[in-house]
Structures are given as C-alpha cells and as structure tokens.
Simulated assay, not measured.
Amino acid sequence: MNPKKRIAMRAAKEFKDGMVVNLGFGIPVLSSNYIPEKVNVTLQSENGILNFGGVAKLGEEDCTFCNAAGMPMTELVGCSLFNLDTSFAIIRGGHVDITILGALEVDQHGNIANWALENKDGRYSPGMGGAMDLLVGAKKVIATTVHTTKDGESKILKKCKLPLSAKGVVDLIITELAVIEVTKDGLLLKEIAPEVTLEEVIKKTDADLIISDEIKTME
C-alpha cells in the first residue's frame, strides 16, 4: 500500500463522533477520504471553512472551494464559509478537538518541526502558516509523516534539528511503519504495520522507544 495512503487511513481512525477536526496540508487532508462509517465529524480548514467532505475527484472539482493548501474539497450540507479572523478564533478558542498535521521532524519530547527546510543560502522557507496556532490551540495533536527521509534518515528523533513549530505539544505520531504515543516518560510504540518487524521500526527510529507490552498490528 502507498505509505501516505496508509498513514491517512490510520489517522482517520482517530476521528470520533461529534469532533471538530482540522486537517493540515498533504497527508492529513487525505484522511478526509477515509472517515469511518457512522462517524460524523465536522472538518475545519484554517482558511475559513467548516463542515466539508473529502478531496474532490478529478473533473468534479470547484476551483473556488479549496482548503488552505489550495486542494479542491467537496461541500457538505450546512457548510459554512467565513473570514480568517473567525477561523482563528475557533482555533485559538480551543474549539478544535484534533488537529492532524504533517511533520518534517518529531522528537521524543513531543516537539515538532513542520514549517521550514533550510535553503542553500542558509535561510528557511516557506513560512509558519497556521501551524503554530493549531499546535497550541487544538485539544489533541497528531503528527503524520513517513518514517524516514528519502536518504533513509529517521524523522522520529531524540531531538529536532530544524526550527520548531511548537514544543511539547504532540500527542500521537503516525507513520507508515508505526503508531507512537508521546507520554511523559517518552515515546510509547503501540502499533506496527502488518509486514514490518519490531526490529525494523527500532532500527529506523533515532528516538528512544518504550515498547508496549501489548503491541498491536496497525489496522
């Protein structure tokens, strides 16, 4: 299975009935296509949308109805559009139950770096966007990322190397290999993918892992 699809599908299993859920760029927004049956959530986008559906299919998209990343979404009955002031009042006011965000790096202290890569001239780009507000405003933060870089380097670190988006805010990390909970004692490995061994996850993780006594197979 495509790694990003697997991550999105697993992330959607964290949705519970009645939740207000914010989805970040990339992998997170794909989870809107895999909301479990009979689970009703209200999706929120930081550019000012409340109550939308999955990603629009090719040929059915409306270029004027997009999420914060410019990806065309489907409109649901009762959908509401509003300005950025209202959108960030919802976020900063603690009305978002879960935010699912992409990550460049996450570490064993719950720190996350997800907004910038260093350019050749030593500067960082792009900008922070709404991540900072979401990370401190949402009740639960889920970081989604492929487990390693293209060069095979772990993205789950002992300590983040890139500029942080927020400190100590991540509650759960979901990769194509594993589901890891951030606890006060460190990173608790709770699930591993069906075809993956425990040894492989440990080898590909820079951070120290606490191995759960009841490790499950990722659904």
Rank of each mutant, 00 (worst) to 15 (best):
N2E: 11
P3W: 02
R6M: 03
M9E: 14
R10Q: 11
F15Y: 15
F15C: 02
K16R: 13
D17M: 05
G18K: 08
N22E: 15
F25K: 02
S32Q: 03
S32R: 09
Y34R: 04
I35W: 07
I35Q: 10
P36H: 06
K38H: 15
K38M: 03
L43H: 12
L43Y: 10
L43P: 12
Q44V: 09
E46D: 13
E46L: 10
N47I: 15
G48A: 00
I49P: 05
N51K: 13
F52S: 03
V55W: 03
V55Y: 04
A56K: 09
A56E: 12
G59Y: 11
G59A: 10
T64S: 15
F65N: 07
A68Y: 15
A68R: 13
A68N: 14
G70D: 06
G70F: 14
M71W: 04
P72I: 08
T74Q: 06
E75A: 02
E75S: 08
V77I: 11
L84Y: 09
D85H: 09
F88W: 07
I90E: 11
R92Q: 06
H95N: 13
V96R: 01
V96Q: 06
D97Q: 05
D97E: 06
A103Q: 10
E105S: 07
V106C: 05
V106N: 04
D107Y: 07
D107I: 01
Q108L: 05
H109W: 08
G110T: 02
N114M: 12
W115C: 10
L117Q: 07
L117E: 11
N119F: 07
K120I: 08
G129F: 02
M132N: 06
A138Q: 01
A138P: 10
K139Q: 15
H147M: 13
K150S: 15
D151A: 14
G152W: 00
K155S: 04
K158E: 12
K159S: 15
C160A: 12
P163T: 05
A166C: 09
K167I: 08
K167L: 12
V170L: 12
V170F: 04
V170T: 06
L177F: 14
I180W: 14
V182G: 00
D185R: 15
L188Y: 13
E191Y: 14
P194T: 06
E195M: 08
L198Q: 14
E199W: 00
I202P: 03
K204T: 08
T205W: 09
T205Q: 08
D206P: 03
L209G: 13
I210Y: 06
K216H: 04
M218E: 01
